[in-house]
Each structure stands twice: as C-alpha cells, then as structure tokens.
C-alpha cells in the first residue's frame, strides 16, 4: 500500500496552482490528504501530477464579513473547530465539525478537501447545505460561484471541471439567537454518518418558527435539503409532535445501499436524526442561541 509514482508540484499562489491545473496532464489537487492519500495508498487513484496547495496562504484565511463568513478552502477543520468566530456566529458548523473524523485527521483535513472529495456521508457538505453556502471556484478561465445545492453532480462528483479548484466558501450568517443542531448516527465515534441531520431554527418573539433549515447526510449520494419538512415547520409553534411529523419527510430521501446499511435503514435513521437535530436546535434557540 504505497502510493504510485507521480510528479509533485508545490505552488505558492492560487494563480500558480490554477496554471498547473490548466497545463499538466492528469492533475490532482492535494489538500489535507485525509481522503486522497488513503486512495493513493490503495492505488485507487493514480494521478500523473500531484499539486500540493498546502503552502498557499491565500487559501487558509477565514474572513468575517459581518453578515457573512468567508472560509478559505485550505482552512483546517481543526482550526475552524477552535475558531471563536465560528462557534459564536455559526454554531451549526462548529457542531458538525466535532463529528468529522478524529482529532488527528481534523488537524490535517480541510473544509475544501471535504467538499471536493464529497463523500456521501460527510458532515460538512450537509451543514453547508443547511447554511445555504456559496462555493467559489477558480480556474485559468476565470472564477464562478456555485450554490451548495448545485455542488453535488453525482456520487463523489463535485461541480468542478478538470481545470477548476475550489478556493473558498461563503456562508451567510443567521442572526444571533438562532439555534443549531447536528446529530448523526455512526457505529463508532468519528465514523462517517450512516445518517445525520443538520438543523437550524430561528424563533419569533412569540415562539413560533420564523426560519428553519434542514439537510441530511449519509443517506443519499450527496447532502439533501429537506424542503418539505421546512415548509411544514415554518410559522408553526414547535412541539415534539410537529417535529416528529416533519421528520417523517426525511424518510423519502432516495437512499444508498452499502456494506454498512441498507437504504431502508438509512431512511429510518434519517427520520430519527432529523427529529433529534430539531430538538437540539430548538433547545439552543430557546436557550438564547449560544451554546
């Protein structure tokens, strides 16, 4: 299980990286390496050219835009986990991060790597889907923005052309006082989710649901937004029965069979996870927003 031969490139700037992407034969971007390197060790992936973007400082910045948060593609998951800004303004992302792999992999793994690898059971794409994130993509041909809903093009296939690279993610922030919940079911702590739900709730002064966002991971080939559930919840007074009803719609997500679980089981889990994520989000919203 040794990686196959490749040529190694270590650009110092985004521009240089994009230039290499445009010109090199069979290139692959090396970000945190926590998914790509195992696949190379197994020789499932054998790129001719490896472009290591770990030295590009521009990709490792997190910027507070007031109403938005812009996160560079190479920001390490562990740095985001430690970020007071993320914790305070985007508690969903913080909660999701705690479920991503293990400390040792989060130390290296990046937010952009997770999105570009796009494992069906990954936590971050679902969290970002609930957050309505926009993904910034660059190439020598120019830049373009992709809505998170348009990111997954199929099984482990992000919306990226061969010469393109994810450079940053922008998250529109919800007002302070909202509640977030991220609940997943995995056989062991740190495993990819067999089903997981990201939930955000904002309550009106009268206690009704003013705004809600729900996305599930681990069930289908990519993250799935639960629009029907959101519609059922909007404007209503939260209750256990309401959450249980709304969560039922998670059972309609298409679903994937694999060695870990059948799609039927995954759908059942999605319902339970959605119910629990909503309860967690509500508790946080009622507790004043911060954890």
């Amino acid at each position: 299980m040794k990686p196959p031969p490749f040529s190694y490139h270590r650009p110092d700037s985004v521009d240089e990286a994009l230039g290499l992407l445009a010109t090199l034969d069979d290139p692959k971007i090396l970000a945190g390496g926590q998914s790509l390197m195992p696949m190379m060790n197994f020789r499932y992936v054998m790129p001719a050219n490896l472009i290591d973007i770990n030295r590009i400082d521009d990709l490792s910045r997190t910027e507070n835009g007031g109403e938005t948060l812009r996160i560079g593609a190479m920001v390490r998951q562990r740095d985001l986990e430690f970020s007071d800004l993320v914790k305070a303004r985007c508690p969903l992302l913080h909660a999701a991060l705690l479920n991503v792999g293990h400390v040792q992999t989060r130390n290296r793994g990046t937010i952009g790597g997770s999105l570009s690898h796009l494992d069906p059971a990954a936590e971050l794409p679902a969290a970002l889907m609930a957050l309505d994130a926009t993904l910034h993509v660059g190439s020598k041909r120019g830049t373009r923005d992709v809505a998170i809903t348009d990111w997954s093009m199929g099984y482990m296939t992000p919306n990226l052309e061969m010469d393109e690279m994810l450079t940053a993610i922008t998250i529109p922030l919800w007002p302070a006082g909202h509640g977030a919940g991220f609940v997943e079911f995995a056989r062991r702590h740190g495993d990819f989710a067999m089903a997981g739900t990201a939930a955000m709730l904002a309550l009106s002064p009268s206690g009704t649901i003013e705004r809600v966002a729900l996305a599930v991971t681990g069930v289908d080939i990519g993250p799935v937004r639960l629009h029907d559930a959101e519609a059922m919840l909007a404007g209503q007074t939260p209750s256990e029965a309401l959450f249980a009803d709304a969560a039922q719609t998670a059972g309609a997500v298409p679903g994937l069979d694999d060695v870990h679980a059948s799609k039927a089981y995954r759908r059942k889990l999605a319902i339970v996870m959605t119910k629990r994520a909503l309860a967690q989000a509500l508790a946080q919203a009622q507790g004043g927003g911060d954890d």
């Binding site: 195992p38 197994f42 062991r188 702590h189 740190g190 495993d191 990819f192 060695v259 870990h260």
Partner: peptide
C-alpha cells in the same frame, strides 16, 4: 479496509 471492517475503539 478499516472503514468497512469495524474494530472496537476506545469511545
């Protein structure tokens, strides 16, 4: 692989 075959872990 150890993602498919699950060893018992500390947690």
């Amino acid at each position: 692989n150890f993602g498919e075959y699950l060893l018992p872990m500390a947690t």
